[in-house]
């Protein structure tokens, strides 16, 4: 099947699928970043139980396979009388996992700050919050640009999980299996989806590099 024929027949669905993938990616990334920050604050807090709980969170969700988590959310949770919509299940999975990685990146970003700078901030009379604002946060954020762009790409790839549940409209991966069951020669569908994913990943990577070059901290 040629690209034109395929797009005439399934063009609208493709747009919808692309939109689903982008929407899921953006939503997941924002939620994952927010959750990742909360988890990180817990991990660096002086309160032991919070540290332990947040460490546990990270270990669980950076090690659980996406498919296993999605299956638990979709099939197991209802046994606990928690029934989520398919979309919510996918969004939950594609948020919980990247959040763990987000926290890992933030932690290593902060670890690039030499302890001496923190002592210097203290010796200048900065309070804890002033130190965080002037010294810790700006450096952690700036050294997290590249990891965060990688995370955004990884999050997008994770959203392919959406193809494993009946979603309407489905995502860029789901539409490939949809088209292959409704038409012959779906390889073209595969190629289009692959190109869209890859192009998006490359663009994200380039923008990330651009920002990183602007804000990178010389050491």
């Amino acid at each position: 099947m040629s690209i034109t024929a395929l797009l005439t027949q399934f063009g609208d669905r493709y747009l919808a699928a692309l939109w689903t993938t982008y929407k899921l990616t953006a939503l997941s990334f924002i939620l994952a970043a927010a959750l990742g920050i909360v988890i990180t604050v817990m991990r660096i807090s002086p309160i032991r139980p919070l540290r332990i709980a947040a460490d546990l969170y990270v270990q669980v969700f950076r090690n659980i396979p996406g498919a296993a988590l999605l299956i638990l959310l979709v099939y197991a949770l209802p046994y606990l009388q928690v029934v989520l919509s398919y979309f919510t299940c996918v969004l939950t999975a594609t948020t919980l996992i990247p959040a763990a990685f987000c926290s890992e990146y933030l932690m290593s970003g902060m670890n690039t700050i030499s302890p001496g700078q923190i002592e210097a901030a203290r010796s200048l009379g900065m309070t804890f919050l002033q130190m965080i604002k002037n010294v810790v946060l700006p450096q952690a954020v700036r050294s997290s640009v590249l990891p965060m762009t990688n995370l955004l790409v990884a999050t997008m790839l994770t959203t392919a999980l959406a193809s494993q549940v009946p979603l309407s409209p489905t995502d860029l991966t789901g539409i490939v299996s949809y088209i292959s069951t409704h038409a012959v020669g779906g390889v073209t569908a595969f190629l289009i989806s692959a190109a869209l994913y890859c192009a998006t990943a490359v663009v994200i990577g380039q923008v990330g590099n651009l920002i990183d070059r602007k804000v990178r901290i010389l050491r």
């Binding site: 994770t158 959203t159 392919a160 991966t173 490939v176 299996s177 020669g185 390889v187 192009a199 990943a201």
Partner: peptide, 23 residues
């Protein structure tokens, strides 16, 4: 390398599952 890193594993799986036989 960009292709390998920029495409979800699931999509590759669908390729081998759905289309490899056709090819």
């Amino acid at each position: 390398i960009e292709l390998s890193r920029g495409i979800p594993t699931l999509l590759f799986i669908y390729f081998f599952f759905l289309f490899a036989p056709q090819l």
